[in-house]
């Protein structure tokens, strides 16, 4: 068990390093000169001596590998550099925005998972009947609509027409609990609905195959109620692919926050990332992408560990 965990940790670190390298490589390919961010060209005359000096300070003249080495060396020590635009440490920019995106993502995941489970189970239980058909139709619809369209629709319906929720903006949890809840509902729903559709399908398919298992028949033949058999006997063995896909989808979800945060004017990491790209604030882009990838890899490692909790058979195999 300890050995497995150790191995996982090594793999996790290796993945994060690989990602950091790729991020650095790709951002270095972006067109535009970071110095332009600091001293915008076209406004009066540029002091070429100053430009050269800044370039030297930022190490932009070094070969690619040296630049990467310097950057990652600092990152390992917790120094992500300073924003070219705001001159603030990148890390504090990230940590200021992170709680917003994290809340959005967590609420979206919880909403989609906790709706998908009963919907998928009901659908499988009533396979081929009216309940199943209606759930499947809604799911099909949600799958074919991208989140930002759902988002626009939600803004239009619930915020502009019904006026029950704010259309855009963000109230921090520390400012007002109800305000915070109100501001998270719409963007989280927009993110959650397409995920909800995927998860519902998954739970349905897995439940249908689990319901064919002999142990489900045995459980029924013991006289246990349908609800008990469905939730206690059939759901847990059917949840493995749900857990995997939820883990994998965190990536898509974090990506989705970029668009959704923009749409709902939510001041999260995604919005910051877009800003940074627009202003060629390369070092911020690198920091945020690395941060998000690390979160993603950590979550997927956690998913592997959750497997072992859910299915005791895996525990034995990997021990």
């Amino acid at each position: 068990m300890v050995k497995t965990l150790g191995l996982r940790l090594v793999r996790l670190l290796a993945t994060v390093f690989a990602v950091s390298f790729l991020t650095f490589f790709m951002t270095s390919l972006l067109p535009g000169d970071p110095v332009d961010t600091i001293i915008p060209p076209g406004i009066g005359e540029r002091d070429e001596v100053l430009v050269a000096q800044i370039r030297e300070e930022l190490g932009l003249n070094d070969p690619f590998l040296v630049r990467y080495g310097n950057w990652i060396g600092d990152v390992v020590q917790g120094d992500f550099g300073k924003s070219y635009v705001t001159d603030q440490p990148v890390l504090s920019e990230i940590t200021a925005r992170l709680p917003v995106t994290a809340e959005l993502a967590i609420v979206a995941v919880l909403m989609s998972v906790f709706l998908a489970i009963p919907l998928g189970i009901a659908s499988a239980y009533k396979q081929g009947k009216a309940v199943d058909n209606s759930i499947s139709a809604v799911v099909q619809f949600l799958l074919s609509v991208p989140p930002f369209v759902v988002g626009i629709f939600l803004i239009w319906g619930l915020a502009l027409q019904a006026g029950v929720l704010p259309a855009t903006g963000w109230v921090r949890l520390t400012e007002s609990l109800t305000g915070n809840i109100e501001s998270v509902i719409l963007p989280a729903s927009a993110l959650a609905l397409s995920q909800l559709a995927v998860f519902t399908r998954l739970v349905r398919a897995d439940m249908i195959s689990t319901l064919q298992e002999n142990y489900v028949l045995s459980a029924r033949a013991k006289g246990l109620t349908d609800g008990y058999v469905l939730f206690r006997h059939a759901f847990r063995p059917s949840s493995l692919s749900l857990i995997t896909v939820v883990g994998l989808n965190i990536g898509a979800l974090l990506g989705g926050t970029v668009v959704i945060e923009q749409l709902f004017a939510v001041p999260g990491l995604g919005r910051k990332l877009l800003e940074a790209i627009n202003t060629r604030d390369i070092i911020v882009v690198q920091g945020i992408v690395l941060f998000i990838s690390a979160i993603y890899v950590i979550i997927n490692t956690a998913v592997d560990l959750i497997y072992m909790v859910v299915d005791p058979r895996i525990r034995v195999k990997s021990a």
């Binding site: 002999n214 142990y215 045995s218 459980a219 029924r220 013991k222 006289g223 006997h233 847990r236 063995p237």
Partner: peptide, 24 residues
């Protein structure tokens, strides 16, 4: 039937390897 299954009439199935729930 649920008050008869397992209480009045019980079943034992063919394959004990698959008739117990693996995660309980």
């Amino acid at each position: 039937m649920q008050s008869i299954w397992g209480k009045e009439i019980s079943m034992v199935f063919q394959d004990p390897m698959t008739s117990l729930n693996p995660v309980m």
